[in-house]
Amino acid sequence: MLMSLPQVTALANKIKDILNRKAGLQSKGTRIVPANDATNRPLLGVIAIMCYFAALAGESVLMINRAVDEWTSGLSSAITIQVRPVAGDTALSLDTQIGELLKIVRAAPGVTRVQELSRRDTEKLLEPWLGAGNILDELPIPRLIDVQIDRAHPPEMELLSLNISRIAPNAKLNDHAQWNDRILIFANFLRGLAFGILILTIITTITIVLFATRAGLTAKHEIVEVLHLTGAHDAFIAREFEKQFMSLGLRAGLLAIAAALLTFLLFSGLISRYANAEIYFLPTPDLYFSDFLLLLLIPLGAALVATLTTRVTVLRVIGRTL
């Protein structure tokens, strides 16, 4: 999936050939308006860096989406009932309350499965915080009932909540909606941030190409003048410049996605090596085929942005001449 540097260069050269084939010059590979290698090489680097940022931002959005899906799909199909023991409650009366609760919840429409978490389960949940041991005896640990609901036809939460508190005044129904909302706020913030970075890289690329095109026009003004006087339309001249920057954008984009792929291979390698259940909140950084297709948009997008910027700039500048 990853392209080696020679492969990237070969692909770029091929594209160059295709671009040149259209110009009807005798000597193949010659352009009417030559590229300035001395200025274009650093330019290639800077645009490649922009593309790399764009690739990271795009891939981050995909990972955020995937993580949000993983978190919320588990949570939104489950609700929890928490029953806190209060002073005077004996284990026996608590058991009775729980027995009653299980009965009415099970009977409620939209509920698919109801199960009280056993002591062992609860202990396990608390172990990371309180350490192993016979915790339940010393602490007023709430008892938890795990309720799976039918997401398509969820139960009437308010009614359920009312019924529950009638039986056990200290019981609390938690449908995770709040937790869900918080994840979404956070995820949306990150998505917005990534989108903002993407916009900034595009603006930066436009600016870079704009200045490079202006410099190119100044450096090549004699050629431009001859072309004009020989009857070339503005669009013809613009195309000569576009070829340069289109291939520059393509090459920069290809370099960038090669670097981005390396970065993600490194990242997923790190995670699969060091991650365990304790950092379950980290999203799985697998590269999907669809991600790869999305990365391919980056060289295309860079070429498009560079081409359009060059065209607009050239047409504007030479439009002022006779």
């Binding site: 005798q26 000597s27 010659t30 009417i32 001859v226 020989t230 009857g231 070339a232 013809f236």
Partner: peptide, 17 residues
């Protein structure tokens, strides 16, 4: 045009057309 061959220089008006 200095970087084009004599041939390509002469061909330029035709290429443009």
């Amino acid at each position: 045009i200095n970087h084009l061959s004599a041939f390509d220089n002469v061909a330029l008006p035709l290429v443009i057309a």
